[in-house]
């Protein structure tokens, strides 16, 4: 089914891992280590959330953009039609 639709979970997972790593590099120091005078407070929970959100978002986007064109339109129209109905 996934091949017919065009989804490639392996490639999308690698994409998500790379995006998560970049998010860790970017947000890790600034968000995770909050300066307090010459000391710091660790906020690693926030960083974990941000990395998870970025990786999940990238995974979804990657899956979506790897879909075959017809399936991409099928999903978009289904989502928008639902939106209009409610």
């Amino acid at each position: 089914m996934s091949q017919a639709v065009g989804i490639n979970f392996k490639k999308s997972s690698i994409d998500a891992l790379i995006a998560g790593f970049m998010a860790l590099v970017l947000f890790g120091p600034i968000v995770g280590v909050v300066l307090d005078g010459y000391n710091f407070n660790a906020e690693f929970g926030k960083v974990a959330w941000m990395v998870a959100i970025v990786a999940a978002g990238r995974f979804v986007m990657s899956c979506f953009f790897r879909l075959k064109k017809a399936w991409r339109w099928h999903f978009v129209t289904r989502i928008t039609m639902k939106g209009w109905r409610y």
């Binding site: 300066l35 010459y38 710091f40």
Partner: peptide, 10 residues
Amino acid sequence: AYITAIALAL
């Protein structure tokens, strides 16, 4: 500048 201070603190 912030990363410098963070690196120093770490």
